[in-house]
Amino acid sequence: MTDKAPPSFRTPGRGAVGNPDIRFDRLARRFEDDGWSQPDADLTDLPVLRTQVREEVPRTVITRNTSPDLSFDRSVNPYRGCEHGCIYCYARPSHAYLGLSPGLDFETQLIARPDAPAVLAQELGARGYVPATIAIGTNTDPYQPIERERRIMRGLLQVLSDHHHPVAIITKGALIARDIDLLAPMAAQGLVRVGISLTTLDPATSRAMEPRVPLPAARLRTMRQLSDAGIPVRVMVAPVVPALTDHELEAILDAAAAAGAVAASCTVLRLPREVAGLFRDWLSAAYPDRAARIMGRVRELHGGRDYDPAFGQRMTGQGVWAGLLQQRFRLAARRLGLDRRLVPLRTDLFAVPPRAGDQLPLF
């Protein structure tokens, strides 16, 4: 008996190599070879696994958190699932709440929220709302490929701009440059900052780990475009994969500083829930010669486990190697002037735009 069923689709340009069971299901599925399978059969006749998008009508879009590891208490996600397909993505387990697998389903069964801008406007206009920075891109990337057609992120930015509301954006998508016309005026008012995630400078490694993400050179060009428009950009060296990308830390920071980044952060690889198994399977397929070494170092970072979710160390890791990495990061960031603390985004400009029929103030 084996857990690995023969493929039903070809999956070019996908990160995960399978679809693990959904942890909330009462029953698990296992493949049992009855002797009639043909392991050496030609797979070129199989259909290609395509992206499918469904729509969701949200009642609310602002999600709150109280995590001590995060610098924000609220976020908005225009999409569920992410076509970028990053194998290391910590958001993959969230797809199980939809009854979908964190594996290939996360990359191909996407949920769009076209009403999100209108719902956000209602929430910002609610009596008693107190403004604070909204983070976008903390779960799935708002500038993943379907945004080019759906333009939901564009709509959210327009609402935030109309309300003079602060926003922090995290993305790997070069499509963010499309919205410079909205972002630049907001940046001039101290209402926006952008984090660009850069995992490696090597295009082959990037394509293997993050198959539908713009290549590193494209992300560096995007940093330059945003910086030239006056939009503050933080380079996020995340995640650092030990024994695979950690040696690039200083080179990534050098390249980002040259592209106009004004700050930097660094996060180690974390593999919550199903991500651990997905990452191990991917390693075995993509880097069989160093898979054991990489996972050994990952476990060293997390107290002997694939992942330790404890606040305060889940993003930095623990142990000697983690300490050396943080020391390298601090030294390089200080040398490049990327260790600065950015000025907090403004909340004093927040205002609800007048609606049709509202009585205008006399003074």
Rank of each mutant, 00 (worst) to 15 (best):
M1Y: 10
T2L: 09
A5S: 14
T11Q: 08
R14F: 06
G15E: 02
A16C: 13
D21T: 09
I22P: 00
I22K: 09
F24A: 13
L27V: 15
L27W: 13
R30D: 11
D34T: 12
G35M: 07
W36G: 14
D45A: 15
L46T: 04
P47W: 02
T51P: 00
Q52H: 14
E55R: 12
E56Q: 13
P58I: 10
T60P: 02
R64N: 09
R64Q: 11
R64Y: 14
S67C: 12
S67W: 08
S67F: 09
L70S: 08
S71G: 10
R74Y: 00
R74K: 11
S75N: 10
P78L: 01
P78R: 02
C82K: 03
C86M: 04
R92L: 00
A96S: 14
A96Q: 15
A96M: 11
L100V: 08
S101T: 08
P102M: 05
F106V: 06
F106C: 12
P117F: 10
A118G: 06
V119P: 03
V119Q: 01
L120E: 03
L124R: 02
G128A: 10
V130L: 15
P131S: 06
I134A: 05
T140W: 08
D141V: 01
D141Y: 00
P145D: 05
P145T: 05
I146G: 00
R148V: 14
R150P: 01
M153H: 06
R154Q: 14
L157N: 00
H165L: 10
I169H: 02
G173F: 00
A177Y: 01
I180D: 00
L182A: 12
G190F: 04
V192H: 04
V194Q: 00
I196G: 02
T199N: 08
L201E: 02
P203V: 03
P203C: 08
A204I: 13
T205H: 10
P214K: 09
R219L: 09
T222F: 01
M223W: 02
D228F: 03
A229W: 04
I231T: 01
P232M: 09
P232H: 07
V235L: 05
P242Q: 07
A243L: 14
L244K: 04
A251G: 03
A256N: 10
R270T: 08
P272H: 02
P272A: 08
D281Y: 06
L283I: 08
A286Q: 14
A286R: 12
Y287A: 11
R290F: 07
A291H: 06
M295G: 04
V298S: 05
Y307L: 06
D308G: 04
A310Q: 13
F311C: 12
G312P: 07
G317V: 07
G319Q: 06
V320Y: 13
L324D: 13
Q326I: 01
A332E: 11
A332I: 03
A333P: 03
R340G: 14
R340Y: 03
R341I: 13
R341E: 14
L342V: 05
R346L: 06
A351H: 10
R355C: 09
R355T: 09
A356P: 07
G357F: 07
G357E: 03
F363V: 14
